[in-house]
């Protein structure tokens, strides 16, 4: 039964191997190059237009025609909005994730369904959150305001935060829970003192990731947060946001204002970079802690 399987096709196989290896490595390079190109272009175009007055002043009269002023309104508005939304999302997210990991059995139907609905919510486009937020706002008798924006963005952040939290809290070993129960702790005490403490860096990372997503999202606040040149002083006033400020400035026909859009984009990118670096640092510290 000996076959004459000479290695004559070996050369062809080697060529195929190397061809695809190059193609694959090339694909990775493309992905990385895209990131570099995006961040690079934004910084390169935005940095020259960035000035102190841009981040310390609100828009003065005729700002969108190229006159004096800055985007402090949008910076402050975005920070308020994203912070408020993140806070609200934590208030829902943390109890839910703790519940499905501590109270419900890890494989119970309720836990499975909750995870599934988080997955589904994660897939809902932000423009749909925007539309829903708008309906909710009208239903509650609100006008476009900081509060309406916060509620909408909180909904958007909820699945992002919960999934990230669930991922770390799931890793808490069940033995640890049992050890806590055997010392007479209630489930609530176990959840707060053992589980939360054990996975705190991971929870903070989840919160940061959600914050980053919240501060960058435009489609959801378009309908709900409004836009104003003034700094918001109450929850019921409209608030400007950074992504929308970028969008509106870019939409003007004046090159000076467009340059400000680039500068604002650079600023937003810097904030996102900072937040993800922070999140990354926490993860690093956390894993180091584990080993």
């Amino acid at each position: 039964m000996r076959q004459s399987l000479a290695p004559r096709n070996l050369r062809r196989r080697k060529i195929e191997e190397n061809f695809f290896r190059v193609l694959m490595a090339g694909s990775v390079l493309i992905v990385i190059a895209c990131l570099g190109l995006i961040v690079g272009t934004i910084i390169w175009k935005g940095l020259p237009a960035l000035s102190l007055s841009m981040i310390t002043q609100t828009p003065k009269g005729g700002y969108y025609l190229g006159r004096e002023g800055g985007i402090l309104n949008a910076i402050v508005g975005s920070l308020y909005l994203a912070s408020g939304a993140t806070l609200l999302a934590v208030l829902f997210s943390l109890p839910i994730v703790l519940f499905i990991n501590v109270y419900a059995r890890k494989t119970s139907r309720l836990a499975t369904w909750t995870r599934f609905s988080f997955d589904v919510l994660w897939g809902v486009p932000s423009i749909v959150y925007g539309a829903f937020g708008f309906i909710l706002m009208v239903f509650m008798g609100l006008r476009a305001s900081l509060l309406a924006g916060i509620i909408t963005v909180a909904l958007l952040e909820l699945p992002i935060m919960s999934r990230a939290m669930d991922e770390v809290i799931r890793l808490v070993p069940p033995e640890l829970l049992e050890a806590s129960y055997s010392l007479g702790a209630t489930k609530l005490e176990t959840a707060l003192k053992v589980v939360v403490r054990q996975s705190l860096p991971g929870i903070l990372t989840a919160i940061l990731i959600a914050f980053g997503r919240g501060i960058g999202d435009a489609a959801s606040v378009l309908f709900t947060a409004g836009f104003t040149d003034r700094l918001p002083t109450s929850l019921f006033q409209p608030a400007a946001t950074l992504p929308l400020a970028i969008f509106f400035q870019l939409g003007t026909p004046f090159p000076e204002v467009q340059a400000r859009a680039y500068a604002s984009a650079a600023l937003l990118t810097a904030i996102i970079l900072l937040v993800s670096l922070l999140a990354r640092g926490l993860i690093k510290k956390y894993t180091k802690h584990l080993t």
Partner: peptide, 9 residues
Amino acid sequence: AYGPRLHGQ
């Protein structure tokens, strides 16, 4: 047949 095919059969 997987192996023999790979090796050219």
